[in-house]
Structures are given as C-alpha cells and as structure tokens.
C-alpha cells in the first residue's frame, strides 16, 4: 500500500549521537562498535551518552 511504499523509499535518516562522558569513554571498548563482533549477538551491548 501507499504507506508501506513511502516507508520503504525513505532514506536511512540518521543523526549524530552525543559524545560519551569522560567516565564512560575511559571504560568503553571499541569492540562494541566493530560490526563483526556483534553478528551473532542477539542483544549487543550499546553504550550511549549518559546525559
């Protein structure tokens, strides 16, 4: 239907995330964001900015 067509043709609209707080960044591990690591992980860990 028209709505589904509109949705499938919509570009992948993205925005930037906030930077992590220093205290989060020092504990962060980039394996979280390297795609090959999460291929088989159902619930990949996702650190987001602690605003």
């Amino acid at each position: 239907n028209a709505q589904t067509n509109a949705m499938t043709s919509q570009k992948n609209i993205q925005s930037r995330n906030w930077y992590l707080h220093d205290s989060q960044w020092v504990k962060f591990n980039d394996d979280e964001i390297v795609s090959t690591q999460n291929t088989f992980n159902e619930n990949p860990k996702q650190t987001i900015a602690d605003v």
């Binding site: 992948n12 609209i13 993205q14 925005s15 930037r16 995330n17 930077y19 964001i33 390297v34 795609s35």
Partner: peptide, 10 residues
C-alpha cells in the same frame, strides 16, 4: 563519530 542507525562505513 558515532551516529544513530547502521552506516555503510564505520
């Protein structure tokens, strides 16, 4: 730097 959603590039 980090963006929402999947990106073609890392």
């Amino acid at each position: 730097s980090m963006t929402s959603g999947a990106t073609e590039l890392h």
